[in-house]
Design a protein around this nucleic acid. Structure first.
Lengths: 226, 226
DNA sequence: CAGCGGTGTAGACGATGTCAACATATTTCT
DNA sequence: AGAAATATGTTGACATCGTCTACACCGCTG
């Protein structure tokens, strides 16, 4: 009986005998899709993106190796799903910075920069997955991931637009200006997360002071010239 | 006779029967080490870092799969060797920018920024390998790669030091200021190279204008406040 | 000429992503 | 309610990869 074998029943979130709910929650055995994403996020945090194997994820979810293919077209698609969650979270922390400093554009700017840096350091592996070359990123593919990324970027564009109106930030194509500001943040985070700033890591005080300098630089670089 | 088999003799750089030369060029069959690096650089340019398999490189060099292990401890070590070459090249282009604008610090700054961006766009895959998470990067490992990276970074520190003395750039820890300036460049390049700026790619004019803005932002962000 | 270390080779192992074929559970149609 | 369709999960197999071990060859030094 090669089929009745393991089936750790505790691993499944209770097959839901209830008739039907409004949300089209998957049926069958449990919602594997989310279980895979959750396991992936957990494993990503603990071991990094390299450890995110399809088989490993399936193992952690208590299913067979090819089961994930019913929910993700390929390993890359699964990674894209995990990365997407990261962009959602990133957007959230950026929106939070906005909520707290809506009135003062300069404070908003600095808070957004700190939030971005905080996200990168707090979710380093996630950050690497989102912006690194861990998966193919062909245009037209992974549109959902793409949208989530644009959603996060849009919060920066909103900030730039508002700051241009209030005269804090230089005029010019808002996209270009946003990218210029974003680049400063992103470059610092990318270098740090990839351990290219290890001469700072040994001096945590200098690291945090540099982070603060970067947050300011990010604004000064695009501040309206007098 | 399972051993006499392939041995494409043309692929080897002539066994060098000459007695001995000053440089300790490897003997035996040819200098496989450099052949592997060359093939790797070529393949990297054409197909990206994912294609850099040990077996594939060995194939390209016309040797057996495990031959590379006589010259590189692991695949990561080979990748590190290839990345190292990239840092050497990057340092070269940065030094060239310096040579051309030694006197005018502002021009030097802009030229260095353009050179960095030019390198990233011209050697996109190499850039990704150098700064992405394609290989383990434990501290203490790959010291040669590490040194090459620091060598390239040092050219930026030199620029910042000179610019601080001449009053162009703000005071403060030169390392921190260098990182702040570098971050702007690096962030832009990293985003572009990883295709996260595709909304720009469709508009090459906007892309180049943004690149120019970034090159300026990189200086404005750390310019001495009046 | 013997031996020895530097170099290259074949075989094997475990691991991975993916495909095709098959089994089973849930929904939908009649 | 029963049948058919669909969604989900499983096994087996294949090609590929990095790496280990044992072995073969080469060119030098004694």
């Amino acid at each position: 009986m090669p089929f009745k074998t393991p089936r750790k029943p505790a691993a499944r979130p209770a097959p839901r005998k209830g008739r039907r709910s409004a949300a089209p929650e998957p049926y069958h055995h449990g919602n594997l899709r989310e279980a895979l994403l959750e396991a992936g996020i957990q494993l990503l945090k603990e071991q990094g993106a390299e450890a995110l194997g399809l088989r490993e994820l399936a193992r952690q979810a208590g299913v067979s190796r090819t089961a994930p293919y019913r929910h993700f077209e390929s390993r890359d698609a699964l990674l894209a799903g995990i990365a997407e969650q990261g962009f959602v979270k990133l957007r959230e922390v950026l929106l939070e910075a906005r909520r707290e400093h809506d009135a003062d554009h300069e404070a908003w700017f600095i808070a957004a920069a700190r939030a971005y840096i905080g996200f990168a350091f707090g979710y380093a592996e996630h950050f690497k997955l989102m912006f690194g070359g861990y998966m193919k990123y062909e245009p037209g593919q992974h549109t959902s991931l793409h949208d989530a990324g644009n959603g996060a970027f849009q919060t920066l564009v909103d900030l730039v637009l508002a700051s241009q109106e209030s005269g804090l930030v230089m005029q010019g194509d808002p996209i270009a200006v946003s990218i210029a500001a974003w680049s400063t943040l992103h470059g610092f985070c990318s270098l740090a997360v990839h351990k290219r700033l290890d001469f700072l890591v040994e001096n945590p005080d200098l690291l945090s002071r540099t982070a603060e300098l970067v947050a300011r630089t990010c604004l000064e670089g695009v501040r309206a010239r007098k």
